[in-house]
Design a protein around this nucleic acid. Structure first.
Lengths: 346, 346
DNA sequence: CTGAAAGCGCTTACAG
DNA sequence: CTGAAAGCGCTTACAG
């Protein structure tokens, strides 16, 4: 900038003024400045600019997700980006891997880089350490999971409601023994879904059979083993709810390995690519990850713009996508247990 | 920092020295500084620090990907993050949506935020505009696609080789009419794969039949229509190669809709969740997105550390994962064309 | 409308 | 070992 000023023969203030398009500058000087900037390939250093500017806004935000490569969270990421882009704001993104220490490191790092706000999918049972960011006035919005020991805006899926729809649909077609395959119990969404399962059964006058509930699966291999285990029970479930996408992958794979894919109903939580290409097509409770991202970003920017008021809690609805596995009736599993029979033959 | 200095009763230089753990400071002063920092919840402002520091390193890098939510690119993102994390470096990430203008905006924005380096999956046919970043000494590594009109390090999949394996496997089991479903022709990887198809046929003494080649599909709906079109030809293909993950989704879905999933062989490029849960299991040429990310980040940091020398070009091997669809023989499609027949019955 | 000066929060020679 | 001063690349009152 100094060089631009020298080449244009004006002061630093004038260059700054022209570059930022603030107050009036005579067309002649402005032209000279712009020409000099062009010649020198001048680009304003945003970090330096931010240091002195009155609003101290860096036009960058930080995203802390369990895993940037998880299909659900990468879609949330995308949703946030779409809104941020409108404002010329760019995002840091990092994976916590469900490790609270890592989460704190990421937040520390993003704050030290003076982000204007944070979107966090929290891990662990205590986000009170964020008091410091709050003191510094950094807005925070939680996604997918509500914070604990800390109160702030959050945008989450209707976890309990989504599971209730799944349970409702399975009960409606006659299932009474519905197995449940869940994620790590200390992930709030996993706990909410699991509670949704129990409550939905309760509302229909049924009591859950704990033998049918398997938690802490988290990956497809563990889910697969849980399914093997469940179906070999003396009185096995006729339907399964898999409460997370990797668990669904393991569940579908296990049933196919056993040749039971047309016998045991499955409803997965969270949609997947290829879900309409399995046989039968996979029925899921779909979350709207993009909408969650959009909403979180909108709230974050409203806060950055100075909106005050109590924390907002947005619950984004889920929707059941019927493709086949959730429409298998309870009697399908009564047929003899050999694999390979085609649909409609059993 | 000023406040920490005042509270500790020392100079700014001393505080800076203690915080950064540089030269020797008497244990007593150091203790007072640390205590004061703790009391005031002091956190060093990295952007200000970066402004004055000799190396001018911000410990942040920028990632420009076609879409942060695409399964392949989000895995590349993850791979880069894993290496960056070792060094305490954090990433900006943004989606270009295959739009060269957007790509340039992202790079502009990241550079203005003084990133130490860039990883770019380039879009468009000309990256020469990066001359400016080169002048400023910002290292750049390209991933997934080599740059054009610009020379720099790159890490790509063995696209031609991967397609050649697919073609080879299909030819080996007797297929002679192999359809090809490709992405946008101006995406370098799409062009390389398409060329790989032609060349692989050529090496086996065959000439491609252009009627069997459908390009510019890019999403699953368009792929689906292309498949409908191909199979209704008078002399339809007995096998299909789908050269990108969303195209594979459309292809598998189309065949299942037509009841041809056991009749026509399919090999997809790029692996998918649920690929082992379709019926038959989906055979794919898997890319190692994580390895691509790791390698790109390692090269980038080597350059940031001052490595000179000519551009490095890393080609990451692909591997065929056999799950069923790629092992369907050519005679399977000779059976009568009615849908719904189970495997083994036709 | 324009410029000289101060200052954002830090680090870095340079004295002592 | 410690501190006073200068300066990183900018923006912002403040004069004129």
């Amino acid at each position: 900038m100094k060089e631009v000023a020298r080449l244009a023969g004006v002061s630093l203030s004038t260059v700054s003024t022209v570059i930022n398009g603030q107050r009036q500058v005579s067309p002649e000087l402005a032209g000279r400045v712009r020409e000099a900037a062009r010649l020198l390939h001048y680009r304003r250093d945003l970090t330096a600019s931010n240091l002195r500017r009155a609003d101290r806004l860096s036009a960058s935000i930080g995203l802390v997700l369990p895993d940037v490569s998880n299909p659900f969270f990468s879609a949330v990421h995308r949703g946030i980006e779409e809104v941020a882009r409108q404002r010329g704001v760019f995002s840091f993104a990092g994976s916590s891997d469900e490790d609270p220490t890592r989460e704190q490191h990421l937040i520390e790092a993003f704050s030290a880089r003076s982000v204007d706000g944070l979107v966090i999918a929290p891990t662990g049972d205590d986000q009170s350490y964020l008091a410091r960011e709050r003191e510094e006035g950094i807005p925070i919005v939680f996604v997918d999971r509500a914070p604990r020991q800390f109160d702030a805006d959050s945008v989450v899926s209707d976890n309990a409601g989504g599971i209730a729809s799944a349970v409702g649909q399975l009960l409606a077609i006659g299932h009474r023994r519905i197995g449940y395959l869940g994620d790590l119990e200390d992930i709030p969404t996993a706990a909410e879904r699991r509670a949704g399962y129990r409550d939905a059964l309760g509302e229909h006058g049924l009591v859950e059979d704990l033998q049918l509930v398997r938690m802490n699966l988290h990956n497809s291999t563990r889910a697969q083993h849980a399914v093997f285990d469940l179906v070999s029970m003396p009185n096995p479930p006729t339907a399964l709810i898999s409460a997370q996408n990797l668990i669904t992958v393991g569940t579908v794979h296990a049933l196919r390995t056993l040749g039971l894919q047309h016998r045991i109903a499955v409803i997965g939580f969270d949609d997947l690519l290829l879900a309409d290409a399995t046989e039968p097509g996979l029925t899921v409770v779909a979350q709207d990850a993009l909408a969650i991202g959009h909403s979180a970003a909108e709230i974050l920017f409203a806060r950055i713009d100075g909106e005050s008021g109590p924390p907002r809690r947005v619950v984004v609805p889920t929707s059941v996508i019927r493709r086949g596995t959730g429409e298998i009736g309870p009697r399908a599993s009564e047929s003899e247990r050999v694999g390979g029979d085609p649909p409609g033959v059993a």
